[in-house]
Simulated assay, not measured.
Amino acid sequence: MEPQQVNKGDRNKIYFLIIVIAALIGTNGYLFFKDRQQGEKIVTVSTEKDKLRLEVEKIEVELDKVNALNLDLNEKLLAEQKLAREKIAELKLALEKGTITRNELDKAQIQIDELKVFIKNYNDQVNQLQKENIFLKSTKDSLENSIRNANDKANNLANENANLNAKVKKAAALKIQKAEIIAYRTKSSGKKIEVTKSSGAQKLSIRFVVTPNELAEKGHHNIYLRVFDPAGNLLADESNRFEADGQEMQFSHSIFIDYNNDNSTYTIDWTNPKPYIKGIYTVILYTDGTTMGKAQLELK
């Protein structure tokens, strides 16, 4: 049997179908590769956004570290930090956008790189400030220690000086070497008669010699007397007061003597404002704030 002949019209249809199928295959291939590239581009952009966002957060953490140091930042550093935080806020807002172009990403990367340089310089300034603060604190502590040591030394010297002055004052104090008391009455002729009975006594006469002392100050010394009767009562006026041995006291009588470290004998006469009674009278003498000594007399 002879093969069937394909006419020219059918042959043309077959060629047309082949071309259409080839075109469809080519179109589908193009669309497939295009979609794949677009997907890869979206993934790449998203990844870069995350990377940039992480870098911004790191920069913000660096600024937070500075604040955690509790340094007293100067106005310049505070102003620079404020500008940096404003730029960080802008970048974070831009990176949170749903869609972002390559140009926007590139611009953000440039700004982040600038921020990194700023943060490095900023940290260098803060570190220098921290070193200066440490130096100033060390200097301040050193000065405070020096002042404290100087004050301690001054106080010790003052105490030593006070102790030395007290010792000198004690060593220079006038002390009685010997003393006696006599009672007497004065006759109409003016003659003084020593008595031993209380009924005849009018005045007491205290006679004393001061112990020689080269350290004692020569010249006038105020002598205070405190007279006690046999009952232990102080015979003194309420208004007569002086200080001795660190306390305020009343005195019975006071006079000035001229001390010349020459074994002179001094005499003080005292009149009792009350009648004399039987018993022992005690007289204590003071000068320059210290006790000189005492003497006693018994009246019958």
Rank of each mutant, 00 (worst) to 15 (best):
D10C: 08
I14D: 15
F16I: 15
I18N: 08
I19L: 15
A22P: 05
N28Q: 11
K34C: 05
E48H: 09
L54W: 07
E55F: 03
L63N: 06
L63Y: 08
L63D: 02
D64R: 05
K65L: 12
K76C: 01
E86V: 00
K87S: 09
K92S: 02
G98C: 00
I100W: 00
A108E: 03
I119E: 07
V126K: 14
V126T: 11
K131G: 03
N133G: 08
K140R: 15
K140N: 14
S142F: 10
E144D: 15
N159G: 04
E160I: 08
N163C: 06
K167Y: 10
V168Q: 10
K169R: 07
K170Q: 05
K170A: 02
A173V: 04
Q177W: 00
A179R: 09
K187V: 01
T196M: 12
L204M: 07
R207T: 14
V210C: 05
P212D: 05
P212T: 05
L215E: 05
E217C: 03
D229H: 05
D229Q: 04
P230H: 04
P230V: 03
G232C: 09
L235R: 10
D237T: 07
D237E: 14
F242Q: 01
E248Y: 03
E248D: 06
S254K: 14
F256K: 11
I257G: 09
T265L: 07
T267L: 12
T271G: 04
K274C: 02
I277Q: 08
G289K: 07
M292P: 00
L297W: 05
E298I: 03
K300T: 13
